[in-house]
């Protein structure tokens, strides 16, 4: 049965389908995907509820009676030092962490694609200039920017502060992606179909958007996943240094930072265990998805089989299937690398 299925793939060979197929077959990655979706769903439902009920995050009315209560049927995850419900804070914190990570990833991916594509497509002086800029940005110390911008914009409102945070997290992280895209574009540019589009008189813009970018979309997705996990961790790091948002706005990083003292760890475990698990599960799932995607994108990797029986045989078969494609990819890769170093 399974062997037959594989035979069919031999004929199809559409890269996207192949990718999906590979990803689906990777149970670790699928596990990550489901975990991720579950977390997102809980967080979205929770924050919708919080918004609809107009929940007051700055509610101090229970400070006298509800300080640091352990989990109970009333407060599922206990309460914090201000007597507020920890469950709500974890949910809202998740929503904000996810938004910040999402927006900053979009920012960095957009910049990365744009710079990489322009650089790779036009080459020459434009390329040279943009690659210099990329090099400068990539060796720029992240914390210098974070420290300075936090000082300059410390007196803005919390909402604005979230956007500053997005900016800080997104503005320096595009360089790796830009380099990859540039390399890809450079190598694709030499391939026949681009020459063909040129010959057909299709405009430059169309060439980039219609033909080049879809070819590099796989790399973008992988890089975005990694960037997403990185953004959440960096927000936590900034929280630890006191450079993130203040009360009453929660983030997972902020919740962890406020619980990271040995006294709280010992006496009020619910303060750190729950946000810790949530953050851990999220990053873990994103990393698993990222790994899965990377394998799926990688032409050299193979579809993982769900049964352990006969794996070696199948592997050998697949080796054959990919042999040709691999050879081509390798050639492209080398070319890309060669040009990359020239810069």
């Amino acid at each position: 049965m399974v062997a037959n299925k594989n035979k069919e793939h031999e004929k199809i060979i559409s890269p996207t389908r192949l990718m999906i197929q590979k990803f689906k077959a990777n149970s670790l990655a699928m596990f990550g995907l489901w975990t991720f979706l579950t977390i997102v769903t809980i967080v979205v439902i929770g924050s919708v509820y919080v918004n609809v009920t107009n929940y007051d995050l700055a509610d101090l009315s229970r400070i006298g009676t509800h300080k640091y209560l352990p989990p109970s049927s009333e407060n599922w995850l206990g309460t914090d030092r201000y007597g507020r419900d920890q469950f709500i804070r974890v949910i809202v914190g998740g929503a904000i962490s996810l938004q910040v990570a999402f927006l900053s990833t979009i920012l960095s991916v957009t910049i990365g694609i744009t710079i990489g594509a322009i650089s790779g497509y036009f080459g020459g002086k434009v390329d040279n200039f943009l690659m210099r800029v990329t090099e400068i940005v990539s060796s720029f110390p992240f914390l210098a920017l974070a420290f300075t911008l936090s000082v300059i914009f410390s007196d803005v409102e919390q909402t604005t502060k979230l956007f500053i945070l997005v900016f800080i997290l997104g503005i320096l992280r595009w360089t790796g992606l830009a380099r990859i895209i540039r390399g890809q574009v450079l190598s694709l540019r030499e391939q026949e179909f681009i020459t063909a589009t040129k010959a057909l008189g299709i405009s430059t813009k169309n060439q980039i958007t219609r033909h080049l970018i879809p070819n590099v979309v796989a790399y973008v997705i992988v890089s975005a996943t990694i960037g997403f996990a990185g953004a959440i961790l960096s927000e936590a790091a900034l929280s630890y240094l006191g450079l993130s948002v203040n009360e009453p706005v929660p983030t997972w990083g902020g919740l962890l930072q406020r619980a990271s003292t040995s006294t709280i760890m010992r006496n009020f475990p619910w303060m750190w265990v729950f946000p810790g698990i949530a953050l851990f599960a999220l990053i873990m799932s994103v990393n698993l998805i990222g790994e899965g995607l990377r394998d799926a994108v990688d032409p050299k990797s193979e579809i993982m089989s769900k049964s352990r029986k006969g794996r070696r045989r199948k592997r050998e078969e697949r080796d054959k299937i990919f042999a040709e494609k691999e050879l081509r990819d390798k050639r492209i890769g080398e070319k890309a690398a060669g040009i990359e170093v020239k810069s």
Binding site: Y68, L69, P70, R266, N267, P269, V273
Partner: peptide, 8 residues
């Protein structure tokens, strides 16, 4: 985590 609640 073995709890031993105290205060803020």
């Amino acid at each position: 985590g073995c709890s031993q609640p105290a205060e803020a």
